[in-house]
Amino acid sequence: MLDVRRLHMLKTVAARGSISAAAQSLELSAGAVSQQLAALRQDVGVDLLRPDGRTVALTEAGRVLLEHADRVFAAVEEAECAVAAVKGTVGATATLAALPSTVARIVAPALTALGADHPQLAVTCLVTDQAQLRELTLGAVDVVLGQRYHHLPETTPKGIAVSPLLDDPLLVVTAEHGGDERPVALRDLATHHLVVPPPATDCGQAVLHACRQAGFTPTARYVTADIAAQLELARAGLATALVPRAAIDPAAPGIRTAPIGDHPVQRLLFAATRRTGTANPTTAAVVAALRTAARQDRTTRLPPA
């Protein structure tokens, strides 16, 4: 009988691209992972991985095996959720992956509420921009607070359930003396010194796409994904920033915010979990807390979208 743990190691290696990277994420030694994969190869009698430049990739047999293994993982997850549902209580641990721009206004209030409502639940929060949904599919996290810009194609992996939380527009941020709070035409920013996220990021792509729709390609004076740095450059009067509303403290001094009037840019914030037929009380509690925090965030006194 195939060992489920070895199958999970194979999936992790395929996703990470190398045995060493998989070992690091699994908190094992590379030798231990190699040994288990060698045992799995002996079990099935065929090579499952092949060299691919500096990485490794699945062979055809490895790909077929993982297609079946994914159904095994889903069945195990379903069994765990069914038992948890019978118990009917929120568990002791959960792991949440969240975007940095959501921490202050959504994640922190949600975790505070969870601590009050479910004091036995310890939530580990991973704050990262990178590959959150992949971590969910690998079982490294239980809930993802992610984003999708409306104009970009949806790329939700198979087996992931998404619960919309909040439509979050980008706002034009300038120094406090830089204007009023009336809507700003994006085309009027063509002559501004802009601070924008790197073009490889979702937000960078969203800004680039919107500016091109408005008739210009932005020439960035500053490029950074660090929203605190973007806001500081705007506060100093050195640049104009385009920042998600949920990432801005409405009481922050020295900045002025205004909605985009002609080509609004919006991201959907969502909570994602692995899809199961039976709801897991623990992940359901985390998602509910995120939903409540997002709902409360809509009442903050910021310019309308």
Rank of each mutant, 00 (worst) to 15 (best):
A85D: 08
A15P: 00
G254D: 03
S101R: 11
P51D: 09
M9P: 00
A32W: 13
V143L: 06
A246E: 06
H8N: 13
L165M: 09
A97Y: 04
A94L: 06
Q42M: 06
V243I: 11
C211A: 11
A75W: 12
A258I: 09
A32D: 10
Q120H: 12
L126S: 07
V144D: 03
V265D: 03
R212T: 09
T137N: 05
H177T: 15
A251I: 01
H68M: 07
I227Y: 06
E60Q: 13
D129H: 14
A15S: 14
A30C: 03
T191S: 13
G91N: 00
A23T: 05
L2F: 13
V107D: 02
V207R: 08
P169C: 05
G204K: 06
T174P: 02
G159T: 01
T59C: 08
A113I: 01
R6F: 06
V184G: 03
A79P: 02
E67N: 11
P100Q: 09
D249Y: 08
R134E: 15
L133W: 05
V13E: 01
G31M: 13
A21W: 05
L49M: 03
Q205L: 11
T224W: 09
T128N: 01
A23R: 02
E77R: 15
A108F: 07
T224E: 10
A21N: 06
T174C: 09
V83T: 14
A94Y: 07
V195I: 14
L49N: 00
V86D: 08
L152Y: 00
A85P: 04
D297K: 00
C125R: 11
A247P: 09
V184S: 02
R256W: 04
K11H: 10
R274F: 01
A30S: 15
V86Y: 07
A246D: 04
C81H: 14
T292F: 00
A206P: 06
V33A: 06
A108Y: 08
L40T: 08
A288N: 08
A279K: 05
K11T: 10
G139L: 07
A206T: 03
A39I: 07
A210N: 06
R71W: 12
L233S: 01
Q24H: 12
L2H: 13
P253I: 05
D3V: 10
G31Y: 14
D168R: 04
F216Q: 07
T278M: 06
G91H: 02
T112R: 14
T217V: 07
P304T: 11
A220V: 03
T12F: 01
S20G: 04
E80H: 12
G277E: 15
L28A: 13
C125L: 07
A39W: 11
A140Q: 15
A289V: 08
M1I: 07
P218A: 10
M1Q: 11
A39R: 15
T89H: 10
R245T: 10
G215I: 05
G31K: 07
L152Q: 15
G45Q: 04
R275L: 13
F216A: 06
Q147D: 11
A239Q: 04
V76M: 12
A229R: 15
A84I: 07
P250L: 10
A108L: 11
H118S: 03
Q130P: 00
A74Q: 11
